[in-house]
Design a protein around this nucleic acid. Structure first.
Lengths: 214, 214
DNA sequence: TTATAAATCCCTGTTTTCGGGGATGCTTAT
DNA sequence: ATAAGCATCCCCGAAAACAGGGATTTATAA
């Protein structure tokens, strides 16, 4: 029995490329192609009696993007599989998609073979993520867990930001209308808390967290 | 008169997508498609009497990549135009391509219309770069000019790297088998040279330059 | 060849950081 | 109500950083 697919991507070229690949496989039937997620939602909502097996969707699309579309599908139709394809591999996006139960994630620069493999795997009931994506996801999780307990207070963030902006303790004290001793306490606590050795470590942490621009 | 094109990309899907777009335009004739730059070089070398108007090429390809291919074409065949398409927009790559006289640069997530416009523009004898690419190129140039005089010596890079890695002066001295005074001199010079105020500034510079990871 | 730059080392101060304490209110959660 | 966390402030001493000189030798470029 043929599998029914829907593809959503606002890039004509990617769409055409994907269609040409899928054409070589005789048992895929393209029900519908869309320029953004809203069209897919409408299609699924209207054609309730039609069997839809898989929605392949881009992440960045106008109006309703791939993340929102995946969430909507997973919330309303538990038997429709989803495969997200994206140009980039932003850990946050990958995380959000996996948490909302996407069935697969591929980078757009994947080869034809991987595309077909991913689609077949997902239609077979399993999940498919490329090795890179898995690594990114796990690394992200791991780092998050390691840094989980370390939560800085508002004041600490203020202070570490100013430290990373090259201000001295006295200058920070003046800026925040606090005693020099207070800032010294904060610096000391930050060094202990963040498990670094000196200003350089604090600066690196501030940059990593985006408190300052490098 | 028809224009003769060559396309080089190791991604079947992109290739197919591009072909499907070009098919809608009747006056483009696809001479040859290749999986990497080496094939294109061979084709051009063999078919000397054939008129080749434009080579569209990806950046990342096995063996001979798009950068090398563009350089080779521009060195050996001044009447063949080149259009580079890429997934990413790394300033270094863009800079290198523009310096080696590429005729156009597009991101792969461009829309169909922009692809056709770029190809037409280039075949008309002009260059084509998308607005983002121009911005990236100019910003890069501008920043380079601003920072031009600041050149660190090998030793200075070693020292600033270790500073940013949270080592103290004494530790760096021990590591490099140098006197503590020497490292102090380097630190001092670096602070003056880079126009920063303290370790935090040095650390930020080191991160920006990629000497250490944040 | 003669500057110039790089790499190395040294000295004298002053300021800042760093590590170890401790204290006082004030809020928040248990 | 009591503990815990936060924000604030203080002290001390050692270590390190910072600022400002200067000096030598060895490459390297003009």
């Amino acid at each position: 029995m043929k599998h029914n697919l829907i593809i959503a991507d606002d890039h004509k070229m990617f769409l055409d490329g994907l269609l040409s690949i899928l054409k070589t496989e005789s048992n895929y039937n393209i029900l519908f192609t869309a320029k953004h997620g809203g069209h897919v939602k409408k299609y699924i909502t209207i054609n309730t009696e039609e069997k839809i097996d898989l929605v392949i969707t881009d992440v960045t699309m106008p109006e309703v993007d791939g993340i929102a579309l995946n969430k909507w599908i997973k919330k309303t139709n538990r038997n429709i599989k989803t495969l997200v394809v994206s140009m980039h591999n932003d850990p946050k996006i990958i995380d959000e998609l996996i948490e909302s139960n996407v069935d697969g994630y591929l980078q757009k620069n994947a080869q034809k073979e991987e595309f077909l493999k991913a689609i077949a795997t997902i239609l077979g009931g399993e999940k498919y993520f490329s090795k890179e994506i898995k690594d990114i996801y796990l690394k992200n999780k791991f780092e998050k867990n390691k840094e989980k307990e370390i939560k800085l207070t508002k004041r600490e963030v203020e202070v570490i930001s100013l430290i990373a902006e090259e201000f001295t303790t006295q200058e920070i004290a003046d800026k925040l209308f606090l005693s020099k001793h207070t800032i010294e306490s904060y610096r000391k606590n930050l060094i202990t808390k963040l498990n670094v050795r000196n200003l350089a470590g604090l600066t690196k942490y501030a940059i990593k967290k985006g408190y300052v621009s490098s």
